[in-house]
Amino acid sequence: MGVLIAVAHGSREPRSSRTVGAVVDRVRVRRPDLDVRVAYLDLTEPSVEQVIDEVAADGHESAAFVPLLLGNAFHARVDLPGILDAARRRHPSLSLVQAEVLGDDSRLVDALRARILGAGVDMDDPTIGVAVAAVGSSREAANRRTRALAARVSAGTGWAGAVTCFATNRNPGPTEAISHLTAAGARRIVIAPWFIAPGLLTDRVRDEVDALDIDITHADVLGDHPFVADVVSARYDAAVGGSTTRARECVAGCTFPRTGGAGP
């Protein structure tokens, strides 16, 4: 049986680990042929190192790591590859492969739209303005890719508009994005979190916009939407299938194609 290790960022916020657990449970249902485990890069246990040691102790010969990350930033390009490289030195007979991040896969955009509609929004309501709330990046190329999510999620709708806003770099921040949407005619604003799990950043966005004098609806995070499990499964298959464009075996100093998108 193959081993799929879903790697999440980690958070001190208990809601985050509960949501990640629900995502992993969904993957287990989706892939009964795999031994699906979860590990965290920081702040939450079990750590990636602990799970690798357990996999080795259980006698497995290989494992594939799927980062539950929406952006290909430091954690995917530096942090996790370094952990896996150190683990290979501890377990030289264990084959460890890192899959591509979840990124801005079209299925996740569909999941985001489903979360918006699930908040009681009609596809053809011209009073709706959607603020896609993402973490933001220090790389402008990644932010441009994330900004494009708004147009993708609103395509084919009758909404007044959609804008991506950022919880960290404020370019634009949530308040600025809402001002843009109201100027476009929106009378009801939907905050659509481009996050796998809730945490301090989603709370920061909520606190900021709830202080505004406007009708605000909060959609759910991507969480355990079935499409998230579908993408995790696909990333695993690409990794173990040896696809050079979607996954590669990490060695010290390896890099990955930049897919942009938001953080966890």
Rank of each mutant, 00 (worst) to 15 (best):
G118W: 00
G173K: 05
G82T: 11
G118E: 02
A141E: 15
D215Q: 05
D215S: 07
A167C: 13
D104H: 06
E13R: 10
A151G: 15
P81Q: 07
A160V: 08
F256D: 01
A252N: 02
V153T: 13
A134E: 09
V121T: 05
D224T: 03
E13F: 09
R18T: 13
S154M: 11
V48K: 01
R15P: 02
V251M: 03
H91T: 10
V27P: 00
Q98T: 12
P14E: 10
I196Y: 07
P81S: 08
F256T: 11
D215I: 04
G241E: 02
H75C: 02
F195W: 11
A211Q: 12
A87C: 11
E249Y: 02
R248S: 15
L43P: 10
I5L: 15
L108M: 02
M1F: 05
T175N: 09
D53G: 11
L94Q: 07
M1K: 12
R248T: 15
L70R: 00
A150T: 09
G260D: 08
R31S: 08
C254A: 10
H225Y: 00
F256Y: 07
R206D: 13
L70P: 01
R26N: 13
S233Q: 05
I178Q: 09
E176Q: 15
R147W: 03
D25Q: 12
V205E: 01
R31G: 09
V27C: 06
T255V: 14
R90F: 06
L181D: 07
W194C: 12
V163I: 14
G199L: 02
R107C: 07
V38S: 04
A87R: 12
V209D: 05
E13D: 15
D25G: 15
D210Q: 12
F74Y: 14
V78G: 00
D85L: 07
L68P: 03
V153L: 08
I83Q: 13
R139T: 10
D210T: 14
L84T: 05
V27Q: 06
T175V: 15
V121H: 02
R12K: 12
D203A: 14
Q50W: 01
D42S: 14
D35F: 09
S62C: 05
S138K: 01
A87Y: 12
P92W: 08
E208T: 12
I191F: 07
A238E: 15
P32K: 02
N171V: 10
A76D: 03
S154F: 11
D85M: 04
S62R: 15
V163W: 08
T157N: 07
L4Q: 11
L70Y: 00
R152L: 12
L43A: 13
A186T: 13
D104P: 04
G158P: 09
F227P: 00
I216L: 06
L84K: 02
D237I: 06
R235T: 14
V240N: 13
G156P: 08
I178E: 08
L84H: 05
E208G: 04
I216T: 06
C165K: 02
L149Y: 12
A252T: 12
R188K: 13
T182R: 15
L70D: 00
I178D: 05
N72H: 04
R258V: 12
R26H: 11
A239R: 01
L94G: 06
I178C: 07
V97R: 11
R89I: 12
D53I: 10
L96Y: 09
